[in-house]
Each structure stands twice: as structure tokens, then as C-alpha cells.
Measured scan of single mutants.
Amino acid sequence: NQESVVAAVLIPINTALTVGMMTTRVVSPTGAPAEDIPRLISMQVNQVVPMGTTLMPDMVKGYAP
């Protein structure tokens, strides 16, 4: 099972992602793949992402898996 990126903390809208904001988990439906964490760092979210929420590609500005 592939791990997806999950918010480790509450991420406010327009916040640039840091490694400490993200964790990985096997979830369904799958979100952004765990191996993309290095690409996701410094990208901004376009909505509030509550802690424990799977990071879906459409939540991150300019990100395409």
C-alpha cells in the first residue's frame, strides 16, 4: 500500500509547506504520494488543511503529481 502525505498540524490557507507540517499514512482515497514530500516543501496550500487531513493534489498551488 502506498503512503500518502497527511497534515501533521493545522495548516492555514496560503501557508508554505515545511517538512514538519507533513507526515505519511496509508489512507483511502490516496492523496499526494509520500515520495513527493521534497517537491511539496515551500509550496503553498490554497485552503485550510486540518490536522490529520490527507493532502490532495488540488490543495497545493502549482502541484501536479
Score class of each variant (00 low, 15 high):
residue 1 N to H: 13
residue 1 N to R: 10
residue 2 Q to K: 12
residue 2 Q to T: 12
residue 2 Q to R: 10
residue 2 Q to E: 11
residue 2 Q to H: 13
residue 4 S to Q: 03
residue 5 V to K: 00
residue 5 V to Q: 02
residue 6 V to M: 02
residue 6 V to P: 00
residue 8 A to Y: 05
residue 8 A to S: 10
residue 8 A to R: 11
residue 9 V to F: 00
residue 11 I to E: 00
residue 11 I to V: 03
residue 13 I to P: 10
residue 15 T to S: 10
residue 15 T to R: 04
residue 16 A to N: 11
residue 17 L to G: 06
residue 17 L to M: 05
residue 17 L to C: 07
residue 18 T to D: 07
residue 18 T to W: 09
residue 19 V to K: 14
residue 20 G to D: 13
residue 20 G to H: 14
residue 21 M to D: 09
residue 21 M to Q: 07
residue 21 M to S: 07
residue 21 M to W: 06
residue 22 M to G: 08
residue 22 M to L: 15
residue 23 T to M: 13
residue 23 T to I: 12
residue 24 T to Y: 07
residue 24 T to D: 08
residue 25 R to P: 08
residue 26 V to Y: 13
residue 27 V to A: 05
residue 28 S to H: 14
residue 29 P to E: 04
residue 29 P to V: 04
residue 29 P to W: 02
residue 30 T to N: 14
residue 30 T to Q: 15
residue 31 G to F: 01
residue 32 A to V: 15
residue 32 A to N: 03
residue 33 P to D: 04
residue 33 P to Q: 03
residue 34 A to T: 05
residue 35 E to K: 14
residue 35 E to C: 13
residue 37 I to T: 02
residue 37 I to V: 07
residue 38 P to R: 08
residue 39 R to I: 12
residue 39 R to G: 06
residue 39 R to C: 12
residue 39 R to E: 03
residue 40 L to C: 04
residue 40 L to G: 03
residue 41 I to T: 02
residue 41 I to Y: 00
residue 42 S to T: 11
residue 43 M to G: 03
residue 44 Q to S: 10
residue 45 V to Q: 00
residue 46 N to Y: 07
residue 46 N to S: 09
residue 47 Q to T: 11
residue 48 V to R: 13
residue 50 P to A: 10
residue 50 P to E: 11
residue 50 P to L: 10
residue 51 M to T: 05
residue 54 T to D: 03
residue 55 L to W: 03
residue 56 M to P: 05
residue 56 M to R: 07
residue 57 P to F: 06
residue 58 D to W: 15
residue 59 M to T: 02
residue 59 M to A: 05
residue 60 V to C: 06
residue 60 V to E: 06
residue 60 V to W: 01
residue 61 K to W: 11
residue 61 K to D: 14
residue 63 Y to I: 03
residue 63 Y to W: 06
residue 63 Y to D: 04
residue 64 A to F: 14
residue 64 A to V: 15
residue 64 A to P: 11
residue 64 A to C: 15
residue 64 A to I: 15
residue 64 A to Q: 15
residue 65 P to Q: 11
